[in-house]
């Protein structure tokens, strides 16, 4: 799994996704968060993926219990989401992202 996407200048959003190996839940969560980031924050975000099986001490430090867990570090305040992030409305609300733009085909 690609752990890091290189930070870009002017980054406003920083996310960590804690997973426990390549489970179906973590694969779905990764796909969902990438989609959301590309749609709303293209070029303005960093996403780190942390496999707790490789770094169990990070799970303790960061008080992670559920997998997958998404932590937003920036902007403050920090936010936490657990689950495969399939409930997009909740994810967008917690991350305070604007409602999705209408698809281009529906624009006048």
């Amino acid at each position: 799994m690609d752990p890091t996407i290189a930070p870009l200048p002017g980054t406003a959003h920083e996310f960590c996704l804690y997973v426990a190996g390549a489970t179906p839940n973590s694969t779905r969560a990764l796909r969902n968060i990438k989609e959301i980031c590309e749609q709303y924050l293209a070029g303005r975000y960093v996403l780190r993926i942390i496999d707790m099986q490789q770094e169990p001490q990070l799970a303790q430090q960061e008080q992670i219990i559920a997998a997958p867990t998404l932590v937003r570090r920036q902007p403050l305040p920090p936010r936490r989401l657990v689950g495969d992030l399939s409930n997009r409305a909740t994810v967008l609300a917690v991350l305070e992202l604007d409602p999705p733009p209408l698809p281009a085909t529906l624009l006048p």
Partner: peptide
């Protein structure tokens, strides 16, 4: 502090305990 958005398990707990 935590919101739930989709399916999850408690692997984090297992990993911490196992560690």
């Amino acid at each position: 502090e935590v919101r739930e958005a989709g399916a999850y398990d408690l692997d984090g707990l297992f990993i911490r305990l196992g560690h």
